[in-house]
């Protein structure tokens, strides 16, 4: 990772921004354990469209500078969401019957420590590559399962409202968006990447849930990971099975999500603090594993940080502009 006072990085392209955001959302999608239903897709779609409606005016307008006083808030949120993602990764490994899930996480910590030393552009490039492989795998899903999908299962009753709220509990990258946009010297690329992410959330994921509903059918009463149940019922062929690829994609996207959140949690800090965040990172992960309810407020925090605060800053600048005052009073430069 570059030192705080060195030359700034070139910035992420639109594809790289979209890849990081989309893979963070997919990591939560792969780890989710709620059975699929049409109401689930409806709630997910409604939440995504509402988010898009609130974010698009912000994405179109120039990004308001994020006050320095608010940056620790975003970094703290990134740390907490990274801890929650680590707990979800453990649950995913357990659901996939990994032989030694705790050992995997134990070895993952030094991997994440090493990844902090790499520039953020490395994670963005890896995300772009992973996104294209994941997109190709998603395109194969309907090909392998279209024959056994039954639309009659779309009428099973479920709660769209619960799914609507659940969508915000799984969308932590929303809270990173202002931080991401403010640090990029390619604001247009960041906006385009965010728009692609909104499209995936609004279209691809709800359609996947609908497809999974038509496939999983009556098995929605079977506990476990519904996405991997969907994959188990739709092998590409007996000769060519894709479930191994999906396991790698699921774990890979979750590790990338962890890397991204930890990068943002340590953003702009020195090396000692960069490594020092791992202690609270692991501590909060243990807390969220022991008391899952303690993470229930993170969804609301993501909405506040990703939508609420940017809107407040935007409205403040509009009001300041209307009054003819400068946006920020003259500040003495610290020598």
């Amino acid at each position: 990772m570059s030192k705080p006072h060195s030359r700034p990085e070139a910035g992420w392209s639109a594809v790289q921004t979209a890849a990081v955001l989309i893979l963070c959302r997919l990591a939560a999608f792969f780890c989710a354990e709620q059975p699929y239903s049409a109401a689930y897709a409806k709630g997910m779609f409604t939440a995504a469209v509402l988010t898009a409606g609130l974010l698009l005016p912000l994405l179109i307008a120039p990004q308001e500078p994020l006050p320095d006083a608010l940056r620790p808030l975003y970094r703290g949120f990134a740390l907490l969401w990274g801890s929650l993602t680590l707990v979800r990764l453990y649950a995913l490994l357990t659901a996939l019957h990994s032989p030694y899930p705790l050992l995997t996480l134990f070895l993952l910590i030094p991997v994440l420590l090493e990844l902090q030393r790499l520039p953020q552009a490395a994670a963005a490039r890896a995300a772009s590559l992973l996104l294209f492989v994941t997109a190709a795998a998603f395109l194969l899903l309907p090909v392998s399962g279209i024959r056994t999908a039954k639309p009659v299962f779309l009428h099973e009753p479920d709660s769209a409202g619960a799914a609507f709220l659940r969508e915000f509990q799984q969308c932590g990258e929303l809270g990173l968006l202002p931080l991401l946009r403010s640090r990029e010297n390619k604001p247009l690329a960041a906006s385009r990447g965010a728009a692609a992410w909104l499209t995936v959330r609004s279209a691809v994921l709800p359609l996947t849930v609908i497809f999974g509903t038509m496939q999983n059918g009556r098995l929605l009463h079977l506990t476990g990971n519904p996405f991997f149940l969907l994959l188990a019922r739709t092998p590409l062929s007996d000769a060519l099975r894709t479930d191994g690829i999906w396991m790698l994609l699921a774990v890979g996207s979750t590790v990338l999500c962890l890397t991204a959140f930890l990068h943002f949690a340590a953003d702009g800090t020195g090396t000692r603090l960069r490594y020092g965040i791992f202690l609270p990172f692991c501590s909060f992960a243990l807390l969220f594993a022991a008391v899952p309810e303690s993470a229930s407020g993170l969804g609301a925090a993501a909405v506040l940080l990703g939508i609420g605060i940017p809107w407040m800053l935007r409205l403040r600048s509009l009001c300041a502009g209307l009054r003819g005052r400068p946006l920020f009073p003259h500040r003495r430069h610290e020598g």
């Binding site: 990994s98 032989p99 030694y100 050992l103 070895l107 991997v111």
Partner: peptide, 20 residues
């Protein structure tokens, strides 16, 4: 050197999925 360490660590992590 950094990449070698990273590759070795990540390889160890992946190997936790293996059994004899």
């Amino acid at each position: 050197m950094k990449n070698a360490v990273l590759s070795a660590l990540f390889g160890c992590t992946l190997l936790t999925g293996c059994t004899d």
